[in-house]
């Protein structure tokens, strides 16, 4: 698995000159100690409730060492501690898919995953599909197919498609539908999502 997956040939880049008011800098608790992937950090002794532990998370190819309560989910740590807000909270109970990230290349719900459980694994978020300011292939295909409306479920949809295509580079329409059947889109843009997934497969195959 590559930490920086292939990028779309379209090379869509940031269009607006003005930036939006938004997420401020977070990450007070973040440091960047290089840690060998796979190294076990959590000690095999009991961490008492309410106590924070040092958790090393490898996200988009970089290791972040954070202080986290053991009850904090991966979604919470990504968004509130590391400051990656691509993965969205929609339900925080594994029922919408807006928080979908790849763990070791496989789509999972970040809201149902404790951060401490992800140590030693590779996490890829929406931000990790970017190459600098260039969109990744699946993201570019979503733009081309207009595969979203409000865009809030989109990070999860993109990651579900990314995970699908890594496992199955040439999916049928039925496989695509099944592949994104763990991601709700209340705006209902499903048919455009199917088209985007198909288009992304083509782009990845160099078509």
């Amino acid at each position: 698995m590559s930490a920086n997956p292939t990028n779309g040939p379209g090379g869509i880049t940031r269009r607006n000159f003005l930036t939006t008011v938004g997420a401020g800098a977070i990450g007070a608790a973040v440091s960047e100690n290089a840690l060998a992937a796979g190294k076990e950090v959590a000690p095999p002794q009991v961490t008492p409730a309410g106590r924070s532990v040092e958790v090393a998370l490898r996200v988009n190819g970089r290791t972040h060492v954070v202080q986290a309560e053991t009850r904090w989910t991966l979604l919470h740590v990504l968004r509130e501690v590391i400051g990656l807000t691509g993965a969205k909270p929609g339900c925080e109970r594994g029922e919408c898919g807006a928080c979908t990230v790849l763990i070791d290349g496989i789509p999972r719900y970040a809201c149902l995953t404790l951060a401490v459980e992800v140590q030693g694994h590779d996490v890829t978020t929406l931000e990790g599909l970017m190459d600098g300011e260039k969109l990744g292939t699946v993201q570019a295909a979503f733009v081309e197919a207009d595969a979203f409306q409000c865009g809030y479920c989109t990070p999860g949809q993109v990651m579900a498609v990314e995970g699908l295509l890594r496992a199955n580079p040439n999916p049928s329409v039925e496989e695509i539908r099944r592949g994104v059947s763990g991601n709700l889109c209340r705006c209902g843009a499903y048919q455009h999502i199917f088209k985007a997934a198909h288009r992304a497969a083509e782009l990845k195959a160099g078509k």
Partner: peptide, 16 residues
């Protein structure tokens, strides 16, 4: 939001 709990990840079935 999850309530707090003690947490452990044992290395052996016996410890678990």
């Amino acid at each position: 939001m999850l309530p707090s709990f003690d947490y452990i990840r044992p290395k052996s079935v016996q410890a678990a």
